[in-house]
Design a protein around this nucleic acid. Sequence first.
DNA 1: ATTACTGCAAAAGATTTGCACTAGG
DNA 2: CCTAGTGCAAATCTTTTGCAGTAAT
Lengths: 143, 143
Amino acid sequence: MNHLLEGLKSAGMRLTPQRVAICRILHESKDHPTAMMIYHELLPQFPTLSLATVYKTLNVLKELGLVHTLGDAGDGMEHYDADLNPHINLVCVRCHRVIDFDEAMVSAIQQTVEERSGYKIQGARIVYYGLCPECRNRHANGK
Amino acid sequence: MNHLLEGLKSAGMRLTPQRVAICRILHESKDHPTAMMIYHELLPQFPTLSLATVYKTLNVLKELGLVHTLGDAGDGMEHYDADLNPHINLVCVRCHRVIDFDEAMVSAIQQTVEERSGYKIQGARIVYYGLCPECRNRHANGK
DNA sequence: ATTACTGCAAAAGATTTGCACTAGG
DNA sequence: CCTAGTGCAAATCTTTTGCAGTAAT
């Protein structure tokens, strides 16, 4: 069982099949899905699934602090990240894919910011925008 | 003249009074305004100003790479930042204010990410979420 | 004089909400 | 049981778009 389900359970929330499936996708997928992506991925297994249920579950997870939102990736939709460890997200502005990038300094910075700003930091959104290697090549070769 | 107006001019765009005013607010304000905030701030001076004009101008500035978007600050609206220097934004999740925080390591990280990821980085969004000192106090004392 | 820009209203699109029904604990 | 969760549809809210009129160069 992943930490999302554990979190829901210890918060006293019900573990419905829909929620289990949504948490599984968030936990497994590396592409930081949007609500719409989760919905379409689950539709074959849950033909009556509602997009509203996906949104409601994502909001619950967010309020519990179990997922972070990354903002949109040029596609106008909110992307969700279940990895709470301080890390960097790399967004390709062309293909809208999002990957993770670990950088040791990130953790150190968060502590520095908290100490020097007086803020009680609850979460972070560290996103770099640019062209991924594949899109750089596609851009260079013709097109 | 600030760099936003210079950028618009050298891109061959017209410098209308509305755009000058929008750029002035972006340049001067330290609170990383939303389209709605800019609109309301300018309404007294431009009674016929349209929200659509604000959005259109912000999109032009964004496409020219003269401003960055920070994502929403818990208020569901896009916040804009005219400071292109690598820096951190601190969002208070209670009062939705956004402040800047300079941290020397930020520039170094961007270079590291670019070298090691193969991405051509065009911009960054480094946002920490938490409670600002005022809201921490307000939270502690009573409420 | 052109033609990009503005402002209005309508449209679009993502997310939220109300409510009756269902099912998890 | 009994209440939280689901699914549907309608509502909401931000942002975009079409177009006729206006103004910057």
